[in-house]
Amino acid sequence: MTDAGRQGFRHRQSAGRRIGRGLQFAGLGFALLWTLAPLYWMVATSLKTELEATQLDPTLFPHSITLQNYTGLAGGSLPFMQFFVNSVLTCLVAAIVAVVIAIPAAYALSRAKFRAASQVGYLILIVRMFPMVVLLAPLYLILLTTGLLDTHFGLIVGYTTFGLPFAVWMIKGFIDAVPIEIEEAARVDGYPRWQILLRIVVPLIYPGLITTGIFVLMEAWNNLIYPLTFITTLDKQTLPAALQLTFTGQFKTDWGGMMAASVVTTLPLMIAFFTVQRSMVRGLTAGSVTGT
């Protein structure tokens, strides 16, 4: 809706519309509170001292703001920087690998209109449904026999199991949106399909590829079971798994430290997410939005 358009209708606002407006703002207020309250609590707790963070009658605002929980992460005996690097490294590589392998398949599924193309497309999505927990044991054995257990490479393979089907599905959606006529000229000139894909299609869907990559990265970052199972030594562990592992140890649950680590775990994801949020959803649902 354009601003001019809205202006033109303003004078027609009845009392009912005004009540509607009031409801709208009440609803918005609720939405903001609902979203922000837990996030506020995470940050506020991370700034409290250990004793204040655990006390039975919680303080809504930190009495004395301290950064000790954050400095504890950086300077503590556990290698949190290493966990962070591990997470970034494995998730980033998994995202790139998944996208690169997915591009040709997505293109073929989108363009080559063999009868079973849509079935193969759905099949790939269905593959994504298979319970990760059940895949764990066989995957563990594969990694073991290939000597990839407890390596970042093995973890990347694990991430690819769910990242790849999703990447194919999303990239296919982006390619579907590229009019086939754009390729016709190149095809007439006799360029092979690989060339058409790399020279014409890929540059056009470049933002979509980034979006897909970040989606896979986020899913990988969120994954808990795979690093818990495939990584056996702590120094190679990812941030979310280390969070689960090191803050609920045999001694005590340190809520302040945990919330500080949570903030640190969340920030990279949030940054990645905000760069692409809009096109990400469009990619996920492209298949339906464009009506294929």
Partner: peptide, 10 residues
Amino acid sequence: WATAEATTRD
């Protein structure tokens, strides 16, 4: 797990 927990690692 002694080296997996901050309390005991050192």
